[in-house]
Computed example of a mutant assay.
Amino acid sequence: MDYRIVDAHAHLWLHQDTEVDGMKIKTMEGGKSLFMGEVRQMLPPFMVDGRNTAEIFLSNMDYAQVSAAVITQEYIDGLQNDYLEQVQQRYPDRFLCCGMVDARKPGCFPHAEELIEKGFKAIKIPAQRLLLSEGRVYLTSDEMMRMFHLMEEKDILLSVDLADGAEQVGEIEEIIAECPRLRIAIGHFGMVTRPQWQEQIKLARHERVRIESGGITWLFNDEFYPFRGAMVAIKEAASLVGMEKLMWGSDYPRTIAAITYRMSYDFIVKSDLMTEEEKILFLGENARSFYRLNNLVELPYIKNMSE
């Protein structure tokens, strides 16, 4: 390959110890976690201490020839802002780290101010987690809108995962109308295997909105490699908004409990459903431009012992 690859959706953490909807998530041994009442393989089993560190990811990235990654966050991992601040400072050319506010309760605006002051260039909201049993939190609440106006003013990117289908699409439309200069990256490829997923994709018809495919191999896990259904969905999304609005993401490390990191994009490289120009855009160039990653490293191909 003669092009640079950018992962638009990955995760890092030192340990998990949190609650979501009153259910515990906690790191165990052998890559496992207690996850909402059951034991799940959260990481590949060779990550025995449960530490999903930048250094381990960089080793995977170097091997897979991935030049840079956007580190997003999720409430199921707990807030990782302190660790990600260190990662951003240590590896500025390899990672763009999103800070995360806890939008499930009041106080997101001063928290966002604090994260921006610390140097975060993007803020993540796992909006699918805002449909709480005790009452839904709307992205268009007064405090949230105040935060989005601040982010627009400071040119801070919004990374957001939405609930299935069109549940929160109207809220995003209202945010775009209020804050037209706010850059927005929508994750999980619009929850592509769920009904009405195209409604999320259509949000990228707005100038500053992009769609990233973090988790697409998880969503098409039942069909597994080479994820032909995922390729068909990518082409359908491109027909709706243009390939220049779409970006590859892996959802590392959870997805590589089932496949290798390279496999999370290799199926795209080998597909006959996309042109070489489309692959260049989807796998790296769109993300490089949108996230303003100007110093992408060039990585050599390292042969396996089995080759």
Rank of each mutant, 00 (worst) to 15 (best):
T140Y: 10
Y83S: 13
E85D: 09
G78I: 05
L150G: 02
P195T: 06
E298T: 14
G30T: 09
S213M: 13
D21P: 08
D222N: 13
E244S: 00
N304R: 11
Q89V: 10
M274S: 05
D93C: 11
K245R: 03
F148Y: 15
L182K: 07
A257H: 12
L130E: 03
S289G: 06
L281V: 00
E236M: 11
I302M: 06
N295V: 06
V101M: 08
D7I: 13
P106E: 14
I184A: 01
G170W: 03
D251C: 09
R228S: 11
A122N: 05
E236D: 11
D93K: 14
D93G: 11
K24C: 11
F290I: 01
K245G: 00
P253A: 15
K154Q: 15
R40A: 07
E74D: 15
A163H: 03
L115F: 08
Q89I: 10
L12K: 05
R288N: 05
E167F: 07
L182T: 01
L283P: 00
E134I: 09
S239P: 00
E143G: 06
R90K: 15
V160S: 01
S250T: 12
Q65D: 07
C108A: 14
G107L: 09
Y291M: 05
A103H: 07
M247S: 03
S59T: 09
G31Q: 05
L139A: 02
N295A: 15
A204I: 01
Y265C: 02
E244K: 01
E298D: 12
E212Q: 15
A258K: 13
S141V: 12
A287D: 02
F220P: 02
K24Y: 12
P45T: 07
V241Y: 03
E278S: 01
L96C: 08
A233K: 04
I71V: 14
M1A: 13
D17L: 11
M263H: 08
V241D: 02
V48I: 11
F46Q: 12
G165M: 04
F120Q: 06
E29H: 08
N304L: 11
V87S: 05
S67F: 07
F189V: 03
E244W: 01
E298N: 12
I25R: 13
M144D: 00
M42L: 10
H9K: 04
I175E: 00
Y252R: 08
V232Q: 09
A163Y: 04
M47F: 08
G99F: 03
D155I: 07
E298L: 09
N60G: 09
D21K: 14
I259Q: 08
I211E: 04
R254G: 10
